[in-house]
């Protein structure tokens, strides 16, 4: 029966981000439609050592230390100047990064000629799947606003 043509469905990356954030206490998802095609938007978000740090200001001075398939290891500085080693998964439309103290999740999915982008992240509570519930919503809004501005400016 497994060979039969059963109906199928597939969650897009934004839906996956909603799911994962549901498992992290305090993780709030901010979503915004960006008025640009997916390829343009994702090229910006995937540029970890460039545009990414201008959009997600929680991570600055990002250096990619290594890649293995969709696994990525980075070194970055937080807004407060602390250096951190960050590990995560990056693939088209998906970026999930974790350091000991930081969590950043970004998903993007095509929406016609536009792109739906979802963001979550913040300061981790060590040893738990939870974020410090301060500034999470604000950071999401600001990151997406910076992304929209950069896309508009054609960076």
């Amino acid at each position: 029966m497994v060979g039969m043509n059963w109906p199928t469905s597939e969650l897009d990356t934004v839906a996956r981000l909603r799911v994962l954030a549901a498992g992290v206490r305090g993780a709030h998802i901010t979503e915004q439609v960006i008025d640009a095609p997916f390829d343009d938007v994702w090229a910006m978000l995937a540029d970890l050592e460039g545009d990414f740090g201008e959009i997600v200001t929680d991570m600055q001075g990002v250096t990619v230390l290594g890649r293995d398939g969709d696994r990525v290891t980075l070194r970055a500085r937080s807004r407060f100047g602390m250096r951190a080693r960050i590990e995560g998964t990056q693939r088209p439309g998906w970026c999930w990064l974790q350091s000991r103290f930081l969590l950043i999740g970004i998903a993007a999915a095509p929406l016609g000629a536009q792109t739906l982008v979802a963001f979550t992240g913040g300061v981790r509570i060590p040893g738990r799947a939870a974020l410090v519930p301060v500034g999470v919503r604000r950071e999401g809004r600001h990151s997406l606003a910076r992304l929209a501005q950069r896309v508009d400016a054609g960076h």
Partner: peptide, 17 residues
């Protein structure tokens, strides 16, 4: 994942999805 490793949660989602 139960111990708070969100990368493990990400991998588990890839597997369960």
């Amino acid at each position: 994942a139960q111990n708070g490793d969100t990368l493990a949660m990400n991998d588990l989602l890839d597997e369960l999805c």
